[in-house]
Amino acid sequence: MGLLEGKVAIVTGGAGAIGRAVSLGLAAEGAAVLVNDIGATLDGTGRDLGPAKRVAEEIIAGGGRAAVSTLSASDLGNAEKIVAQALGELGGLHSVIHIAGILRDNIFHKMTWEDWTSVLDVHLNGGYAIARAAAPHFRQQNGGAYVFATSTSALIGNFGQANYMAAKMALIGLARGIALDMRRFNVRSNCIAPLAWSRMISSLPTQTEAEKLRVERLQRMSPDKVAPLVAYLVSDAAAEISGQIFGVRNNEIYLFNQPRPIRTLHTAQGWAPASLTEMMPALRSAFTPLEQSSEVFTWDPV
C-alpha cells in the first residue's frame, strides 16, 4: 500500500520533465492521476497531444490508473472541466499539483507586454484557475491538498526573468492565501522550488565557463528527485503541513524562510527624509544582497 492508495490527483504540466516525474511518482504511491498538459513549446506556442497521452500510458502500463486532459488550465472554464473529468473518470479528487509553465525570457527594458502577460497567464492565472475549480469539492469533502511549483528564480533572482520571477513569487502568495482561507476545511497548500534539469531551465545561457559549469551541475539533478516530496506533501502523512515553501535539489530537501521583520528603526518624533538619510545605514548590514540563484547555490548536488 502506497501513501496515496485510493487518492486522485491532478497534475498540470504533467508531461514535462518534472511533471512527468511527479505524475509517475504519485501513481507509484497508489494515486490515480489526471495528466493535464497541452504539449506546448517552451514559449507557450504550439500544441502536441502526445506527451500527456504517453505519460498516462506509462502509468497504466505500470498497473495504475490515469486519465488525460489537454485543456489549458489557464482558463477557469477549462479548469472546471478538468476537475469534473477527474471526478467523473477517476472517481474523486484529493490533490492538485500545479507545475505547468512557460518562459519568455528577456531583459526587462526589452520585455514586451505579450512576454509579460503570457507568462503570468500560465503560471499565476493557471494556478488560480485550477485551484479555484477544485476548491468547492475540497470544501465539500472537508479535505484536500495543493502543491504549487515556484522557483528559486523568484525566491532569489535571475537575469532576464522579471515576468517569470513575478509569476512564481505571486504563486507563493496564492498558496499561502489558500492555506489561510481553507484550513478550516482541512485543505492544505504548499509550494516547492524544484532545482532539476528540465526544459524550464534548458534555456540558461552557456556563454561563459561559469555558465557552462552551472548548466553541467543542473544536468546532474534528476526530476525524479522531486516526486517523493510532492507525494509526501499531498498525503495524509503531511496533514499538519501547510503554507510552507520547500526546495528540492537532488538528494537535498530544504525549507525556505519567509519574509518577517529582521531589524527596526524607531523614533518617537517620526521620520523625515533627512533623518532617514542619517539613520538608514543602521539597516544596511541586514539588506538582502542582489544575487542570482547560482550565487547562492554554489555547492555541487549530491
Rank of each mutant, 00 (worst) to 15 (best):
L76F: 11
E57F: 10
P51A: 02
E57D: 14
I60P: 00
S69G: 05
R54L: 10
V68F: 14
A73G: 12
L49S: 09
A66I: 10
E57Q: 14
A61Y: 00
G63Q: 02
E57S: 10
S69T: 03
R65D: 07
A67I: 05
A61R: 05
A61N: 12
L49E: 06
E58N: 09
S72K: 06
T70A: 12
V55Y: 15
L49I: 01
I60C: 05
S72G: 12
G50A: 09
V68D: 14
L49W: 03
G46Y: 10
A56R: 06
A73E: 15
V68E: 14
S72L: 06
G62K: 00
V55C: 13
R47F: 14
D75M: 02
D75G: 02
G63I: 00
L76Q: 07
S69K: 06
G62P: 00
A67K: 09
L76I: 04
R47C: 03
A66D: 08
G62I: 04
R47K: 06
G46I: 02
D75Y: 11
R47M: 06
K53E: 09
A56D: 09
R47W: 13
R47S: 06
S69H: 08
D48S: 06
G62W: 00
G46M: 05
S72H: 07
I59F: 15
D48I: 02
R65C: 04
T70E: 01
V55H: 15
S69C: 06
R54Y: 08
R54A: 10
A66S: 10
R54M: 09
G64P: 03
G64C: 00
L71E: 08
V68W: 13
I59C: 14
A56S: 11
